[in-house]
Every structure is written in C-alpha cells, then in structure tokens.
Design a protein around this nucleic acid. Structure first.
Length: 734
DNA sequence: AGCACGCCGACT
DNA sequence: GTCGGCGTGCTC
C-alpha cells in the first residue's frame, strides 16, 4: 500500500493491519482482527473471542472491510510454528463444503493440540559433580559408576538402570555428589532408511510395487487401488511406495481403520526402514501427541501411522497417503462432523498433488466401481505368496445337514473340528453375535423382552446375568420370573450367541482348551493381547469368537474356521448387507492356514444358493462384485457412496432426532444413515448433492424443492415449520 | 423471590 | 464450541 507520493505509509502504532482469522467454532467465515504486522495465510495465532481466547489460523479470504473499527479486536499471540500449509487450508475448505460442516469446525480438527504450540518444557535430569559421597555404599557406588561418563540421566531412569531405589539418587543429590540440571527435550525422529531391509517380492508384488513407485515418482495426484487377496503381501508392496516417498524427502501417512491395528503395521515399518514411525490416534497421550503434531508441522516426522483424524495433521510436505483396509466401515466418522476418511484422504491427495493408495483384500463396491470407471488405477494381487494356499471353503446346507434340536453346530462341522483337533491344530467357531441369546421369551405367556427405548430385542448376557440392548446400551438385570405373568422358570433363551456356542463346544470337547473372544469380555485390551498371545503360543485349542477375531491378528496354527451362522446379517435391510457379509466372512475364513499349511472354512447356511455364499465357496470375488453391482442397479441404488437420511425438521429437535433414529433402525442401517440439521439438509438437497425421495410421513403433495427454497428464503423461521424426511444418495464425489 | 434448566443467538 | 441472556417453571 502506498500513499500519493509513492512511499510506504509510516508505521503508526499497532492496529495497522486487518487480518482474516478462522477460529475453531461453528462459523464458516473467518473473523477480522487487527495486527501490528501483516500475517501470511496459514499463520497460527491466538485471538480473543467473546470472553475466551482461542487458537486460530490466518485464512485466505480478504479481511472484512465492513466491520467497524470499534468492533475489531487484536491478535493476541503469533505462534512460532510453521504455517498451516496451503493444501491443508484448501482441504479444510473443501471438507467443510462437502460435509456441510463449517470451516471453523473443520479447522478445529487441525488445531486440536493444546500444548503443541508451546515450546516443550526441558527435561529434569541429574549429573555427577565429581564430589565423593561422605559414606560410600554399594548402591551409591553403582550409581556413581553409571554417571562416570558425565552424561545426564533422569532420576527415575538412573535409579532403574542402576538397580537402586530413587531415594539413593535423592541422597546423592542432597550430598552434592549429583546436581539437578535441565536438558533440552529430545525431538529427533529416527530417519528411515529406504534401503535398510528391502523385501523379496514375488512377480505380482514386484509389478504392483513398481507401479506404485512410478506413481510416487510422477509427483502428481493419482489414486491406486491395491486389491489383493488375504496373504498376498499388500503391506510389503505399499511400503515400497513409502520407501520412494522417503527417498524424495517427503512425508507419508498410513491410515488404519482402528487403533488396535496400528501396532502390527508400526512394527513392520520399523523392520523395513530401521526406524520407528510416529503414531497418531486418540489413545496417544497428550505430551506425545503434541510432539508428533509439532514434528509433523516442522517436517521432522517422515512417516505417520494413524487413525482417520491424522488426515488433519499439519504436514509440512505430505507426499503420500495410504488407506489400509479401505473397505472398513470404521473410516466413517459419525459424530460432530461426519466424514468418510477414505474419501477425504483422496481429496487430501488431490489438493496436495500427490498419490493416494487404497489397500484391501475385499475392496468396497464403490472403490471397485471407481477403478473400473478409470478414476482409480487397479493393482491386482490374485494369489497368496508362496507357502500358503487360500483356504478351501464349503457350505453346509442346514436344511439337510443341520444339528439336533437345541444344538447349533452341525454334525459335518463337528466331525471336521474333531479331525483338526486330533491333528493338534486349532479350530475357530465364528458367530458375529455377542452374548448368550438374542431373544428371551416367556413359555407361559409369550412375553418378549424388548428395550424400552428402541423396541429391539434385549440380548441375554449370561456371564453378566443381564439383558442388554445392543442398540442404545440399555441394560437390566435378568429376572427370575416373567414380568408379565409372574411365572417362575418360564423364561427361555432363543437363538445362539457366542456364549451359547461356547457352552455347546465345552460339552462336546470337555478336554480341549477353549477361549471365548468377544468385545464385551472383561479385562480390556491388555487381557485381549495376552489371550491372543496365548492362542499364538498354542495354549488354546478352540476359539469361539465374534467379529473381533476377523481383523489384524494372525493365528499361526489355525486350520479350520466354522461359521455358525453365515446368513446372519444378510437379511437385515441394510443396502450394504451383502457386501459387509462377503467382506467379513472372507476376512474370517482367510484366518485359516494364513501362515502356511492347509486351511479350511465351513459356512453353515440355510441359503446355499445366495450369491454371497456361492461367491465365498467358489472364491470368485469377481463374480460377487459383478452380481452386487447388478443387484444395486436393479434396486435403483447407485453403486457409489452411501444412502443417507435427512431429517429436514421436526416439531422440535428431540422429535426430529427420534424420527432419525427410527429411520436408522428401519431399512438402511448404521453406516447408511446420516442425520443432518434442518438448514443444512435443505441446502444439501437444493445444491443437488443428494437425490431424495419423500418418506411416508411427509405430505406427498408438497413440491419439496420449491418448499425448501421458500423455506430457506423466508428468513427467520418458526421452529417446526416443516415436518418431513427424505432419504438420499450422494453422487460420486470426485 | 430465588434459582435451575433449556433454548437461542453471538462471537470479528 | 462456549458463553451469557432470558424465559419458564418449580421450590424454600
């Protein structure tokens, strides 16, 4: 800015510059603040907002000149940290527009690191002074021996290393033999060596890896779908893309669907590159989070393994994102802003101009469609690496070969299990249903136990002696007598859960060591880890498990997987039911013979002709994919995205939400439903982002498009003005 | 009268 | 998201 004489204006006090600052609250437009100097977009600042002070980021929008001087407040701090990069700022804008969130709320996900912006406090340590202690004891001698090289140690570390109690160290400090010193925190990250331990790759792997390396070398946006059967060595392949990214001096992000799976990948990366990658998810303690955030922003962290929130880390120079197990529904975030991390990863790649890799043994239908339509490149690994075969999968027709009344395991599955156990190998009975029985009813009066909130059946959890709702978490004590007719001992359990299967297995195999693995068993993740180790060490003969066993863990000696109810989940009205079941049962039968030897899967089914069962038995994934795409087309569903519900409005917020929940329970389940507030929903429909169809409760005569337009244009609206719901299909998003 | 709670709008 | 203001309705 120059004045009439072409000279720069004199600096006159502080409030010379207006800057746009996006703040982490639910607003879309940045606010205008004053600053004593110009601030580049991306600068991280603290600003006053109402009664508090919040973190914010200088944004690209021009400052609002219409705000009066008297209303403008001053930037209170400018942080000494690298700016939020352009590509991440564009990404925030894009995600906000796509998810119908506000830019402020998306930025909040980037800035949710309270301590990262303060310099890390120095570490308290002790160092030898050279003074000898008055009395020289054994313990003191050991400590001083450790300290003779002049290095500083933390008190507790020193005590542990010297094998003495911390009070010995305190005593030496009191005597002046050791002095307390402050040392700068170590922030160095191990540098990965791309040539440290290159894997031996088989032909198909080599071909896929070369293709990924080429994609990285091309230095522009692309999406590759690495589609390889369980055990085909996908991880080794995509780590070659990481290696190439490291060679180019850029950062890589590997996304995992859940925290429990990160460890395995972290260990493999450490082996491959002789350096441990950084880890990012909600269970990482705050201090370490802050360190990772800062290290990522300063470009010192070359590789991050993280959950979906890692997409919002402020990478200085991100050059690759890998989405492992891309089909996993855990990538969809439901609370607050609702987004699909797999799709957002692709957008992050587009904004940053770098490649994205999706990896899965059972790709989602939409990713396969995107690959077939040429938006993604597909890399196919059709066979396992040498030394292990795909398990032989057979179907057991329960209409002919079912078990006796009161049992759930068919004779054929039972004898196969006996054969395997006699060989000293392990058996897994899989049933994706927690608890003892999904329904309890009274033999006398027919009373069924249902949830007071959800009107779904209460699941009998016998180990806990409770009846629980798997929908809302409601739990009540399992009564002795029927609450309806008062009869004692008249309650019967209907249908099986894992606890009941375990009971049957115990009766059949009293001498076998049996382990039940289900997410609701007490003891938490430590106990789970110990029990999985026990399985790996051969301390268990039979595992009875839910979905928990399908992911991540390998069972080296597992020879047979018996799926107790392969039809479970096929008929629940979810538009993704077939896809989910195919993915789950592929994963779980794939556990058999995973690390060599033969493996076998047996599916107990009442519908052996169902396309999902047939595809699992034939092992023909392509056939399943073709059938499923055709089935969706016939049902009028797009192969893409998800079906969503919009509650446009209700008489009040609570009623609107209960409509949404009711809808969620009806046809399209869990992941298929999205709940939006009234204004966002109306906008979404008007912007043409959704197709919609009025549901029964809506007045059929209403032209919804016109109604919504008027409704939005009408300015302040009475609450409850519009009562209807629509369900919608998002379009392809690229 | 005094206050708990829920709703709503503002925040530069 | 978080705060303060304000209205409703219930209790000491």
């Amino acid at each position: 800015m120059t004045d009439l004489f072409g000279t720069a204006p004199r600096a006159s006090g502080r409030r010379d510059h207006r800057v746009s600052v996006l703040v982490p609250v639910a607003v879309d437009a940045p606010y205008t603040y004053a600053s004593d100097r110009a601030l580049a977009p991306g600068t991280v600042v603290a600003v006053p907002l109402g009664t508090r002070e919040v973190l914010g980021c200088v944004w690209d929008d021009p400052p609002d000149e219409t705000i009066g001087h008297n209303r403008i407040r001053e930037v209170s701090r400018i942080f000494d940290c690298p700016p939020i990069a352009d590509d991440l700022r564009r990404f925030v804008d894009w995600v906000a527009a796509w998810t119908l969130g506000t830019r402020g709320m998306i930025l909040r996900m980037v800035l949710r690191v309270p301590d990262a912006l303060e310099p890390e406090p120095p570490i308290k340590a002790v160092r030898a002074t050279g003074t000898a202690p008055e009395r020289r004891t054994d313990a003191r001698a050991r400590v001083l021996e450790m300290m003779s090289d002049g290095m500083a140690w933390s008190k507790s570390g020193l005590a542990t290393a010297a094998g003495v109690s911390p009070s010995v160290v305190d005593g030496l400090v009191a005597q002046g033999c050791l002095e307390a010193v402050l040392i700068p925190p170590s922030t160095a990250y191990a540098v990965p060596d791309p040539e440290a331990r290159p894997p031996k790759l088989f032909d198909a792997q080599r071909h896929a890896a070369d293709s990924l390396v080429t994609a990285v070398a091309a230095d522009r946006f692309s999406v590759s779908l690495l589609d390889g059967v369980t055990g085909s060595g996908k991880t080794e392949v995509f780590l070659e893309a990481v290696a190439e990214t490291v060679r180019r001096g850029r950062q890589s992000l590997i996304l995992m669907p859940e925290i429990s799976l990160t460890n395995v990948v972290i260990d493999r990366i450490e082996r491959r590159f002789a350096a441990r990658p950084a880890e990012w998810h909600s269970a990482v303690p705050p201090r370490q989070r802050a360190r990772v955030w800062r290290g990522v922003a300063e470009g010192r962290v070359p590789i991050v393994v993280g959950a979906r929130s890692a997409l919002f880390l402020p990478f200085a120079d991100l050059g690759l994102v890998i989405v492992d197990e891309e089909h996993d529904p855990a990538y969809k975030q439901e609370d607050r802003v609702s987004y699909h991390a797999r799709d957002m990863a692709i957008v992050r790649g587009r904004e940053g101009g770098f490649p994205v890799i999706l990896s899965s043994a059972t790709p989602s239908i939409e990713s396969r469609v995107n690959a077939d339509q040429g938006r993604y490149r597909r890399l196919h690994l059709p066979t396992r690496i040498a030394g292990s075969e795909m398990p032989e999968v057979t179907a057991i027709d329960m209409r002919r070969d079912g078990p006796e009344q009161g049992q759930w395991i068919s004779p054929r599955l039972a004898s196969a299990a006996e054969r395997v156990l006699a060989d000293g190998r392990q058996v897994l009975f899989f049933l994706n249903r927690r608890g003892y029985a999904p329904l309890t009813l009274c033999r006398t009066c027919g009373h069924r136990f249902v949830c007071p909130n959800c009107s779904t059946w209460l699941v009998d959890h016998r180990l806990r002696g409770r009846l629980e709702c798997h929908h809302c978490g409601h739990s009540e004590k399992r009564p002795e007598a029927c609450p309806e007719c008062g009869d004692l001992d008249s309650l019967v359990a209907c249908g099986p859960g894992v606890e009941r299967i375990a009971e049957e297995v115990r009766a059949r195999h009293p001498d076998s060591r049996i382990l039940v693995l289900s997410s609701d068993l007490p003891g938490g993740s430590d106990r789970l880890r110990r029990e999985l180790q026990l399985v790996a060490d051969g301390g268990v003969d039979i595992i009875v498990g839910t979905q928990l066993v399908a992911k991540g863990h390998t069972f080296p000696n597992l020879a047979l997987v018996g799926v107790v109810d392969a039809d479970l989940g096929l008929a629940n009205g979810d538009p993704r039911a077939a896809e989910r079941t195919f993915q789950l049962l592929t994963q779980v039968t794939g556990r058999a013979g995973r690390t060599g030897g033969t493996g076998e899967g047996m599916l107990q089914t009442y519908a052996p002709e169902h396309p999902v069962i047939k595809a699992l038995v034939s092992g023909d994934r392509e056939a399943f994919y073709r059938e499923e795409v055709a089935a969706r087309r016939n049902a009028g569903l797009p192969p893409f995205g998800r079906l969503a519900a919009i509650v446009v409005s209700g008489p009040d917020k609570h009623e609107a939400e209960s409509y949404a929940r009711a809808l969620a329970r009806a046809a399209p389940r869990s992941d298929a439903v999205e709940v939006l507030g009234p204004a966002e929903a109306a906008l979404a429909v008007l912007r043409g982002r959704y197709r919609f169809r009025l549901l029964a409760r809506a007045p059929r005569s209403v032209d919804l498009q016109a109604y919504l337009r008027d409704w939005l244009a009408a300015g302040p609206r009475p609450r409850g003005a519009l009562k209807c719901m629509v369900d919608v299909d998002p379009q392809s998003f690229l």
